[in-house]
Every structure is written in structure tokens, then in C-alpha cells.
Design a protein around this nucleic acid. Structure first.
Lengths: 160, 160
DNA sequence: CGGGGATTGTTATAGACGATTACAATTCCC
DNA sequence: GGGAATTGTAATCGTCTATAACAATCCCCG
């Protein structure tokens, strides 16, 4: 059982500004660059919305999923995030070092841990969830409700 | 003038599969996670479409922009990619080491380089562009033309 | 029921990528 | 003209990954 809280601090990532007077060529018609620009902008907004909470998108995702699936394994956590098991373990260490997540013995499997939010973790998640939901809506306030639904649906298709 | 071609080889990044039987909670309603999943899926497709060309999305973006703006500076290249100047320089080194991009003296500014595609760089870009365009269309073939336009427009709004 | 193969968490190591800082040369602008 | 800003460069660091190996445990099939 490791306990290695590393002092990682997420850095601000600014949105990618369009360079005036520059020809973006075929990039304008391709999803890739637009997708990345949108993601970077969302990341910057996320970072600002969670200021002071020492959070990153993967950490937020992890807390949400652990909260929704108490007792889940580290392997599954890695799968949700799309990272290797070793990375999921480091992340869990980070959470445990801050008292946000607990490793309890898994009832059916002695190899695995069951991950659970602590009371502190739940409180932090609640606060973050509120802030991130607000951010998400604010970020898409230029979009109509129908457009927002469209976007979510289309992205789902793309990721599928 | 550096000449440090580093032997970086992009690795395959698999799409993030949905873990069956797991509750994704509020993530289903948030743009962030969907955006990332879509991006990872696109990256994987990109990687497969450019197999053997030793390419990554940033490299592709760079070649497109340099091709469309001959003589542009490294600083502007960094701005387009959303990275620091030092990173743009390393990227340029990488290109130059492979004979894809040339640094020529800038006519008006003796501090800056003017970036130009070599004949080899243009040939590679042409091949890549064809492959990536095809990929992009294939990846969105489940979408109607109208949906595709919607998606591009909505992402642009989001990145704005 | 027993044993080989798969899975889980862990450790160690390495690599890719980006930021930051400092610097000299050059350009900009008042 | 001369101080402030910009450009490319160099050196260094931090973060996040992956990979490979390992012991403990589980699964399943013969």
C-alpha cells in the first residue's frame, strides 16, 4: 500500500487564439483541429472554474465515476480514463494521500481494491460538480438547448 | 542553427472504450468528457490513416500552415499550435532534420526565420492531406452533410 | 479438484511533450 | 538615439504516459 502524494499542481492552459492574417488552409474543413481547439478552450474554462481545488479533468472524471460506482477497481478506473493500470494506481495514490478516496478490501476479489469516496471526497465532488455544471452551461450559453443536445449527440457518434 | 532530429515515434492511442455495467454519472451531460473521447477516437483514426509517415496531429497542423503561409515565423507556428516558442523550435528542428522544412532568412527581420516547405515536405503534405481528408470523411460518414456542418460550426463557437 | 493461464495491483524505468527562464541579437517606437 | 519589446535559442524541469516484470490471486477446463 503506497502513500505517495506528489505535489503536482495543474498549470493554466490558455485557449489557442487565432493568429490574424494567417491562412489555416485545409484545417478549416477538418474536425481534428477544431476538436482540439474546443477541447483546449474547455480545459481552460474548467481550470478556472475549479480554481484552488487542485483539479484536472482526469481527476474530476475519476471522482465522478468512483462516486457513482462505489467499490470499483483501479483497473476499471484506468479503463474509464483511457490510461494504463499503473497510471490509475498513481492517481489513486494521489487521492488517498489527500484523503479523498479510500482503498477498501474487495469482497469477492483479494487481488483488487474497492475504491470509495471518503466523506471529504464526496464534499469536494459536490462542490466541483456544481462549479463544472455551471461552467459547462456558461460555456455553451451561446448555444440553444437544441444545439447543445445536437453537439452532445454528434460527439457521442464521433467517439463511438 | 540546431540539427537535432530526435527519434520520437508516435505511439498508437486506442479509443477509450465504454466500460459496460459502469455508471458514468454526470459525465453523460457534460461536454468535457465527450469532447475528450471524441478527440481520442479521432487521434487513433489519424494515427492509423498516416501509418508509416511518422506523423502526429501537431506535425500535420504545422505542415499545413507552413505550406499555406510560406515564410512564416516560428513564433507564429507556436501560436497556431498553442505551444511555447521553444516547442515550435524543437518541432522545426525535427522537420528540418528530415528535410521537410527549410529555414530561410527572413527578408524584413534578421532575428526571425522564414519557414518554407521543401519539395519533399510538399510531397509528404499532399499525401497526408489526401489521407487525412479521406479519414475525416470516413469518420463522419454516419453523419449527414448538414450534421457535419453543424458540428464544425458548434465546435468553432465553443473554441471561440 | 488441480493446475495452467489470465487478471490485479504494484514497482521501476523510460519517453514524449510542454513550460519556464535566461540570453544575445535585432527591431520597434517614442 | 536609446530603452523596451520581440525572436530564436539553450538548458532545465515537471507532468503524464507507457511498458515490462513481478507476486498474489482468481478463473476455468480437463
Amino acid at each position: 500500500m503506497r502513500r505517495l502524494p506528489s505535489p503536482q499542481r495543474p498549470r493554466a492552459l490558455a485557449p489557442i487564439a487565432r493568429v490574424p492574417g494567417l491562412d489555416y488552409g485545409v484545417l478549416e474543413e477538418l474536425l481534428g483541429y477544431k476538436l482540439r481547439r474546443a477541447q483546449v478552450a474547455m480545459f481552460a474554462a474548467f481550470h478556472e472554474a475549479t480554481r484552488g481545488l487542485d483539479m484536472t479533468p482526469p481527476r474530476f472524471t475519476a471522482l465522478v465515476v468512483i462516486g457513482a460506482n462505489p467499490g470499483m477497481s483501479q483497473t476499471n478506473l484506468g479503463a474509464v480514463l483511457g490510461i494504463a493500470r499503473s497510471g490509475a494506481m498513481l492517481l489513486t495514490d494521489w487521492f488517498e494521500g489527500r484523503g479523498l478516496v479510500e482503498r477498501r478490501t474487495h469482497p469477492q476479489d483479494k487481488r483488487a481494491w474497492g475504491l470509495h469516496l471518503t466523506r471529504k471526497g464526496e464534499a469536494l465532488l459536490a462542490k466541483m460538480r456544481a462549479r463544472v455544471l455551471e461552467l459547462d452551461l456558461r460555456r455553451t450559453k451561446h448555444l440553444s438547448t437544441a444545439e447543445r443536445e445536437d453537439l452532445l449527440r454528434l460527439l457521442e457518434k464521433l467517439a463511438g
